[in-house]
């Protein structure tokens, strides 16, 4: 890559970030994650109280719910991110390429001397910045409230699981980018990605031995890592490497698709 194409790439990344700011996505997506992250330890802490006040329990019944450990709460937070969090991220990213191609804005950019790879890469970079930012904010908020209300969690386990989980989110978002380039309809892209990621996680969960190498197993490894469970590290590294490999493959495929037909009309 020559310096001039690097400059163009960074100009395009700046544009994408500006778009995230102007569309308030940079504000409300992290906010959703922070909310999700805070809610988990708080509801866990107040659960017995809530049940006592709201439930129609007979007089004198003893409510005895064991308070989960801090690490368990963080694992549950990651599961929240895995459903609502991924939904929000995929919905914000689903029309990132198809929207510009359908409107014709992409053709006006791609007639300029920019490479399709820089175009895809800039979108990918901004999407990942958003995802990692939101994830970190939400997870750190969850950590803070967990330590405050429930119990201590070692930093090493938090940061390790954050990195593993971030890789899973990056994988899902890269697939969103690919499907957004492949399909004209944003809804179809979102549906495909969500369906595929759910299926992948499920299969990896059901057959940990056979599918432990797939990126779908990454979210499971993140839960295991934060609770301090030992897991087969050989299979984990395979999953991480296959995830990275598929990310690169999807980016290359998106750029190739875009090169073949820059405009969707």
């Amino acid at each position: 890559m020559s310096t001039s194409s690097l400059i163009r790439y960074s100009v395009m990344v700046q544009k994408e970030l500006l778009e995230l700011v102007r569309s308030f996505k940079l504000l409300w997506v992290p906010l959703v994650f922070v909310l999700l992250g805070v809610m988990q330890p708080v509801t866990m802490f107040y659960m017995p109280l809530l049940l006592e006040k709201a439930g129609n329990m007979p007089e004198g019944s003893v409510i005895d719910i064991p308070l989960p450990t801090g690490t368990e709460v963080l694992a549950q937070t990651l599961q929240q991110f895995g459903t609502l969090g991924i939904l929000v991220l995929v919905l914000t990213a689903m029309s990132t390429v198809s929207g510009e191609r359908n409107s014709g804005a992409a053709s006006l950019i791609l007639v300029k001397p920019v490479s399709p790879f820089a175009y895809i890469g800039s979108k990918w970079t901004s999407m990942l910045l958003l995802a990692w930012g939101a994830l970190s904010a939400g997870y750190l908020a969850a950590w803070y409230y967990t330590e405050l209300l429930i119990g201590e969690v070692p930093a090493k386990q938090v940061i390790g699981s954050l990195l593993i989980y971030g890789l899973w989110l990056s994988f899902v978002l890269t697939m969103t980018l690919l499907f957004s380039t492949l399909l004209k309809s944003p809804a179809a892209a979102a549906f495909s990605v969500l369906g595929a990621s759910v299926t992948l996680s499920l299969i990896s969960g059901i057959f940990p031995k056979q599918m432990g190498w797939s990126p779908g197993a990454l979210s499971g490894y993140a839960y295991q890592f934060v609770v301090g469970e030992s897991f087969a590290s050989g299979r984990f590294w395979l999953a991480a490497i296959s995830g990275l490999f598929l990310i690169i493959l999807a980016l290359t495929a998106s750029a190739a698709l875009l090169r073949r037909s820059p405009a969707a009309e």
Partner: peptide, 12 residues
Amino acid sequence: YLPQSPAFYNWM
């Protein structure tokens, strides 16, 4: 190049 009905980024 100027297309028939150019589309820009409306937020810019």
